[in-house]
Every structure is written in structure tokens, then in C-alpha cells.
Amino acid sequence: AWPVSGAERTSQEIWESFSQCFTPAVKEVVEFAKGIPGFQELSQQDQVMLLKSGTFQVLMVRFCTLFNAEERTVTFLNGQTYPLSTLRTLGMGSLLDAMFEFSEKLGSLRLEPDEMALFMAVVLVSADRSGISDMRAVEQLQEGLIRALRSLITRRRPDDSALFPKLLLRLPDLRTLNNMHSDKLLAFRID
């Protein structure tokens, strides 16, 4: 139902449009974080540090549902769908290939929305700890969320004992994605 970008749009316009998608998405991650029980009890400095380190990874989890492996298209949060071939011309090839691979792995676990949300919370509080002032508070928050996620998943799927470990194995994948791609360039038109 969403229009696919046609030849009338230049690469520059597509790049800027793509860049703009991230602004509302990042704001939504901030709002999401505020809703995580215990997150706002961390110092503001530590909240900011976790968000700066972890938002890209949370977005990667969030965005994976927008990847259509069969059609090889990506639908962005502004509603526009681009074929992979078009996005490659923007120099995003390696990131997108890694994203398709990650989204297939995560998609195969068939998480319910509440499991996905709790997983995103774990991703955020498991982000890089450089600059964190109260490590113990962050670790306690992380442990609590991981316990809650394990409890939710094992209660719902008692016969699939491999699911929770497979899910945790996605955390290093996300860190790799972050390290490889968070230096990608975005472009914005400003007054």
C-alpha cells in the first residue's frame, strides 16, 4: 500500500528522506525508555548515556519488522518503501545486508509483541557502559529485565528451552551492527 520511490526522486532526496526517518524513531525510543520500570530511577546522566549507546541497537530490533526478506524491500517509518537495489545506491549496502540477516534470525524466533518490547528493554540497558556513573544500579536493572524476559518466554513456551538462549545471542549481533554502522552518514536540510 505504500508507494515505492520512483525515478523522479534523486538519490540526494532519498538520502535526506531516509535520514529524516531516524528523528521520530529516536524520540520514540526515548519515550519507550521512560516507560521501562526502573529506568527513570537511574541518574539522568546514566539514562542519557544508556540511550546514547543503546538507541541504535533498539532501533535495529524495531526496524527488523520493516524488512521484507521475500520482496527484498525496506519500509521506513515515514511510510515509504524502497527496494534494496535503490538503497544500495546510497552506499547503505553493507548495513542493509547485515540488517536483512539479523531480521531473518530474529524473525525466526517469532516473538510476540510484548516479548519483543521486553527484549528491546533488555537491549537498551545492556548497552555499552562507558560513561555510566552507577554501574551497580544499571546491572540490577538489567538483571531484573532479563529475569522478566526469561520468565515470560519460558512460561509461554515451556517446551522450547532453546528460545531464550537464542534470543540472548542476538545481543552480540546487535553490538556488532552498532560498531560497524553507527558511523554511517545522514543528511539534513536546515535553515
Partner: peptide, 25 residues
């Protein structure tokens, strides 16, 4: 005419987060 600003995804994320917290203080 508008100026083209180019920044990394990491810097953009950082900027949005800083703005959000500053606005809510």
C-alpha cells in the same frame, strides 16, 4: 536556501537525546 548538514547516525541519535532531556528539564 537551506544548508545541508551531514552527520553520523550516532551523532544524530546523540543530538536528539540531548535535546529531549534538555527540553524536559
Amino acid at each position: 536556501p537551506k544548508t545541508l548538514r551531514v552527520m553520523t547516525l550516532a551523532d544524530h541519535i546523540s543530538h536528539i537525546i540531548t535535546q529531549d532531556f534538555a527540553r524536559n528539564q
